[in-house]
Nucleic acid binder design. Sequence first.
DNA 1: AAGAATGATTTCTC
DNA 2: GAGAAATCATTCTT
Length: 607
Amino acid sequence: MDSFKEKALILDDIRSKLTKLSSKFQNNSNLISTDFRTSFRQQLFADHGYDPSICDDENSFFNLFECQLDNELTTETIHQDEILKIDECFDEDVKTKYLDAVNSAHNFCLQNCRDQKRAALRDIFMLPSGNKDYVIKTLDQIDSSFTDMFSNMVEQFRVTIGFYNSNINSINNSISACINQTRFNDEIKQILESYFCEISDRPKHCEKLELSKSTGLTIRQIETWFNNRRNRAERDNEKLERLTTEFLDKNVDWEDKFTSARSGKLTENDMRTIIIEAFDLPCIDSIEEEEEEELLVIGEEIETTSPNESSFIKKKSTKTRGRLTKEARKKVAPYNKSTPMTEKIAMMRMNKNDIPTSISQYEDSQEPTSVVQLYGNELPAMSNISQQTTTTDLSNNSVATTTNLTTLKIRHRPNKNLAKTISQPYNRTRQNKQVVKDKEPIISKIPSMDEEQFQVAEEIQPQNLDFTRVNDLIRQFSDVVEFDQLNDISTVNNYSTLPFGFEQYDSLSTVEQSLNDPDFTFNTVTMSNISDSYLDCTSNTNNFVSTNTSQNFSSEQASIVDVINQYNLFDLLPDNDTNITQQTYFDNNNFAVDSLDENIDFNNVES
DNA sequence: AAGAATGATTTCTC
DNA sequence: GAGAAATCATTCTT
């Protein structure tokens, strides 16, 4: 443990010297002589008893500082290209604002790209051994990450100004589509709907971004859609709740009736009568009579032409098919076709403890069309579920309801109209989330417009476009860059643990304390010094990020991370004759938290 | 024409 | 600042 403390001090020393150096360097590289460059880091490590030969590629590093950082982001040419293209096809107002947006985006990416590269270089430089190839690769990755980001933004801007609507096939739709995005088309609805039902009704920011990308809607629109969707689903549930209560409150032993119906003691006709009476429904005599007359005629005809008893009976039995008016149907909740209701009833019974377990199962695959069909099957073991459900009174407690529904895994079903508007049949199976990782910058996929398209675009360009949306986008992208993109970029993950690790040596006293006191925990370690205000620990497959000190961690978890990070960091310095290669630490995501798995419940860590 | 559906906005709360 | 709830405005369905 002596070496632990010793190494901490050494690193602290190296760190302060290097920090001075690199800040000087950023301002004026000429201040540093060639001799100094080639020997500085070697000397530094040699001073502390390490083999200087582990510090290779000195010159490369300095060259990188000098050259790489000043390289323009590769978006530059694309950027110019964009300007030229858009120049030709939109009016002055649209053009200006579009270009402003693109410019802001570009500057933003440029600036952040530089910062990231600078940070990466600084951090990597501090390590005992350098590997030019690795560093260049890292810088390239950062470059391409930001190129992608910029491409995405441009794409979004284009969507906003209706760029893609400007083709010959959709002239009529395009103006209204881009000025006033009224109804979303079927494809978009399908995407949102299936996301809502299958994955989450409350997407996280990065998920919203993906949705935004796949639908072409803005994040704001995505949010609005999900808000509305949640609200309305909730309202529907409440309505069903009310109807169910009403249904169950009727002074009828429904279970008994259904059993009778199943066993044939009661005909559907009987059931219908019972229901109509129970609910005091506006009887639909007129419709009924008409139909009966009709059927009667058919029956007679059949009887005369072909006096086959069975076919006659068959036909006759159709006559008794229960039919209610539309209005009546609405009131008879359990017989309504939009029907997770059956589960609801089961839930309510369960909670009321009057009828134990069995009630019908609602079949995903078919619309229940009659009483028998609706209640023909039995719900699988309710007892499994009941243990988890709350015991609160259901009738007026939507929270409890939601809990129960979730537990039951009740699925939302689009109602008839919705089903109609969604062109593809709603797919109930969870779709494999597409892993979209283009190696190539997305910008290459943005189709360019030919001359003819430009002319069309010019004719139909939107007049009253609200560009606050574009600004919105810029702002949103800024957020995303901080919290999602940067942390998602594997390049950044690789090195972003480093600043944290180094910063921890600011609190050496804490380390010291920990060494003397076996019971000491690192809860008190200051995390506010974390350089980029995020902490990223990467394990084999698990990846969790705290964007702001220990907010997303419990203090216990945070402290574990601290400890492990520090230990691992010390391991960076080769002990005695151990020859540790660059790859051991940097081509391997296990860098920081290899041994954490058994200590941290990754499932509970927000990522 | 009435009513349902739905995207968007406003207001309020936590 | 995010989300729920209420509401508005417009479009679609019946």
